[in-house]
Simulated assay, not measured.
Amino acid sequence: MIPRNACNPGLMTLLRVGGIFSPEHLEATDILMAGGKIIALGNDLGIPEDWPIQVVEARDLIAVPAFIDQHVHVTGGGGEGGCGTRCPEITAREIAAMGIGTVVGVLGTDGISRSPADLLAKVRGLNAQGISAFMYTGAYRVPPPTLTGDIQRDLAWIPEVIGLGEIAISDHRSSQPRQDEIERIVSDTRIGAMLAGKRGICHFHIGDGKRGLEPLRRLLSETEIPADQVIPTHVNRHPALLEEAADYALAFNASVDVTAFEDAGDGLSGFDAVFRLLERGVAPQRITMSSDCNGSLPEFDANGTYLGMKVAKNTTLIADWQRLVREGVLPLESALGLISTNVARVLGLHTSKGRLAVGFEADVTLLDHELQPQQTFVAGKCIYGVSRTE
């Protein structure tokens, strides 16, 4: 029986499932949620008759931490081919349907027609619709556009801002920042985050330029900035860059982010990239995956002339992740880290997200035997899926 003092009276939800992965497998099949938190885990939990509670019977499904996507163009990316090539915004349903409960919104090439203020409005809109949403201040260019005119103030005063990004380096679309400029914006992000009690990561877009990760290697070698302050993404853009990313992760005990490209072209799929990083000896805990969804996948010729583009989707992220488990590259417990536990740690959200544990936020995804999301709960509320409530 759950003790009566476990929570204050109010609407609660009890999930009865076939198994729980926290990400490690738990000897429990019941999750009790109230006040946006997980308040109990167990088997056949008894509920006092006078408690207002809804029961979700899902014995054919397994419960895992709701997925976290740290790189989402929530307001749409694109624009490299003119205003007619702007990508559409993403919807809360498109996010939740993939089992994703938390997203971090990002601006890319276009920091002109889309501003940090637009991004903040969209992030707050998603939160109002049930998605747990955050944002990076900035965009590709340096100095980065901000909300308050200052990176430190953005981090200190705006709760939704958890870092800076995506800053473009080694890319013909970047502003070609000098090394001292990179060092300054990273240090500003670090100080602003310290004042706000946040991790304050700097999310770096890595292009296919010849410098690769050299600016970040210099940053970590020549300054006192810790490796967990910096996250390079799109490191699977081409095989040589992925090899460099493996060396970078091993040399600095750093994390790297793999993009689940829908059409990898000359690069590697998210599945292949994770497989190769593991072969190189990179620890699974140092690898994350993100979708880049609703961003553009532009094609340029050798001279940098725009040829066309596609719009990225988050369906590829889940498909690549499922394949890693199905083909035995990683057991489910470790694979969950790539899109939940590891991401929560990287973002500094690890004390409340990325695990199914008492006191953590009640962000839960229910998967079927094919690892396909069937229901998504954020802060204890079902935001996607067919109702199974008794």
Rank of each mutant, 00 (worst) to 15 (best):
D257P: 04
V282R: 12
D266V: 06
R280E: 12
G270C: 07
R280C: 11
A273K: 10
R280F: 09
D263F: 13
E262H: 03
A254Y: 14
T259N: 11
G267Y: 01
F261D: 09
E279Y: 03
G265C: 05
L278W: 02
F271I: 03
S255T: 14
S269Q: 02
G270Y: 04
R280P: 11
R286N: 13
T259D: 02
L268M: 15
G281M: 06
A273C: 10
A260R: 07
A283K: 14
E262S: 12
F271R: 05
F252G: 01
A264K: 12
T259S: 12
V282G: 08
S255A: 14
D263Y: 12
D263I: 08
L268I: 05
F261K: 06
A283H: 14
R280A: 15
A254S: 15
A273G: 15
A283F: 11
V258W: 11
D263K: 07
D263L: 03
V258Y: 03
L277V: 06
L250R: 06
A260E: 07
R280W: 14
R280G: 00
V258A: 03
D272V: 03
G270V: 09
V282S: 03
A273N: 10
L250N: 09
A264I: 06
D266N: 05
F275M: 06
T259V: 15
A273D: 05
A260S: 15
V274Y: 10
F261Q: 08
L250P: 04
A283E: 05
L250I: 12
L277Q: 11
G267T: 08
A251S: 13
F261N: 02
D266S: 09
A251H: 10
V274P: 15
G281V: 06
L250H: 08
G281C: 13
S255N: 04
A251K: 13
E279W: 00
F271D: 01
P284E: 04
A264V: 12
F275A: 12
V258P: 02
Q285L: 00
F275I: 00
F271W: 11
G281A: 09
N253A: 12
R286D: 07
G270H: 08
V282C: 15
S255E: 11
F261S: 10
F261I: 05
L277G: 14
G267M: 04
D266P: 15
A251M: 08
A283R: 14
G267R: 04
A283W: 04
V256T: 08
T259W: 00
R276L: 15
L278E: 11
D263C: 03
A260T: 10
F275E: 10
F275D: 03
G267F: 04
F275C: 01
R276I: 15
A283Q: 12
F271C: 07
D257Y: 09
D263P: 01
L268S: 06
G265D: 09
L278P: 14
G281N: 08
F261L: 01
S255F: 13
D257C: 05
A260D: 01
F252I: 12
Q285M: 06
R276T: 04
A273R: 12
T259P: 08
A283D: 10
G270P: 07
E279M: 14
A254W: 14
S269H: 03
A254K: 09
F261H: 11
